[in-house]
Amino acid sequence: MASAGETARQAERKQIRGRWLLSAPALVIIFVAAIGPLFVMLAYSFMVKGDYGDVKPGQYSLDGWFSVFFQRDIFDDTVTFADAHLSIIWRSLRLSVITTLATLVLGFPTAYFIATRPRHTREVWVFLVTIPFWTNLLIRAFAMQQVIRNEGILNSLLRATGIIDQPLQIMYTDWAILFGMVYVYLPLMVLPLYASMEKLDFRLVEAGYDLYASRLAVLRRIIIPLVKPGIVAGSILVFIPSLGAYVIPRVLGGGKNLMLGNLIELQFGAGRNWPLGAALSIALMAIVMVALLFYVRNAARSGAQHG
């Protein structure tokens, strides 16, 4: 009789082994071309930079990490804060937060609008949000460039209406990056917001009005708390790529207004400081991980609330 249990355990083991074998190709590919290189990069951040890029093999130092925050004067060896890096990190954070807020302000009413359409037209509106979402990021950045440039449609419009008489210089400013990021990441806010608003039970809203709540009170006390998972998900989905943005500042910021992504690229190009680039990348990843942890904790909490 003891063999019955043995059979059961054997079958279970075999099943689990099969599941590992099945997932092996995906895991191996992702390890080789995504996760593994991150570890190599971590090692690189502790190495000595080579004279023409790359690193000097076998030599380790903390210089890469040191120069994320500080710089050493070449003549007198005094150590000061690396203002250029810190201001770029600060700009990245600031622009990402503003982008997240702006997409939320635009995206929340939009998602609500879609969720309150009749069922058969909802899909059309969602589709309209999906199209820009799947359009190449570069193409969208390029399209935004054509709108905000000095001879672009925005300036023409403002001039035609007489609001301004000289074109506004938007291109190659932080405003250009901000416009570009809001435009590009807007669908990433609308879609998760819509997903949670679609499930909103409007009988609860009805109950709110029945209990003397004003429209604003219903919005603040009922709708927003109920769709909070969507707000958090959307904010994370916008914040993370904003922080790592590379293409948008490159196309719209014009090489002067760098963000973290461009600063990293610079170290692998003209800067020829791979350890610093690696350290900056790890730092960027660390900020993202903090944001993700915040999200996971939030998701876990709201999950627990709903049973």
């Binding site: 019955a4 249990g5 059961a8 279970e12």
Partner: peptide, 14 residues
């Protein structure tokens, strides 16, 4: 029932 069908294995017994 699932054990008789073969979708579940007993820990003990036949």
């Amino acid at each position: 029932l699932r054990m008789i069908a073969g979708f579940e294995f007993p820990t003990e017994g036949a």
